[in-house]
Amino acid sequence: MTDPLAPLRALQGALCARDAASALRTDLRGFLSRQGLEGADLEAMVEAGPTRLLAYRTMVQGRLRRTIKAYIPRVAHLLGNRYAQEFCTYMEVRAPRTHYLRDVPAEFVAWARERWATMPDLPAYLGDLARYEILRDEVANAPGGGEPETGQALALDRPLRIDGSAQLQKFAYAVHEVAGTPIDQTPEPPARATTLLVYRNRKTHRVHFVDLTPRAGALMRRLLAGEPVQVALAGAASDTGGQLNDEFLAAMVHFLTDLSERGVVLGAEP
């Protein structure tokens, strides 16, 4: 018995397979057979010809390719014609999984970062730059954020409540420093380990980036993981090879006070 789902998979193959555009034109029957189509389904699709399958492919790939490009314009510009090739590979080996169109670019970047890291002919900072480019929209739309303040003062033995939109991103390059340059004149970002705290303002909904020192980054990572303040402070000092002395504590209190004023730290968890 013919698989009733085979036509769906065959159409998906025509939309996603890297070689489909040429294969549909030159060997429609062979291509559809390789997708698992047979019998009356195969004959009907062969009789219909490739034109409208190709139209579907143009529509589907065009929409997704444009959507991703809109979120990573600088990286797409740097890739030039290769962007389309990378997109085609993505469609064949992975393709979007999310139900939310706005999340497709992040899925593409998650897939591409690993791949680009192994490609010596691409700039080493490209993956970092792509991740940076999608951060603003990712945090702007993050489901979390706007949680109520606890009303509790900082207590060493308790974790802090942190606004749900906040996230830390570590980069090998200071990619945020090239953000203001014209897209067609993007300079190579400095190769410097960078930790950015990214959050959405609770009132204006604007996204902010804060370039953290290594010890502030270490502390924030631990606080976001839910460690009590005292444990996080000791851990951050240890992580960065420093000591838990007055200077360190004063700097971290200043940092946490600033985050509280920004509405990122919402008080001690009750």
Binding site: L8, Q12, L15, C16, M59, V60, T67, H99, L101
Partner: peptide, 10 residues
């Protein structure tokens, strides 16, 4: 199909 979400009406 099979977990892919192509964001079109097929």
């Amino acid at each position: 199909a099979d977990g892919r979400a192509l964001h079109d009406l097929l």
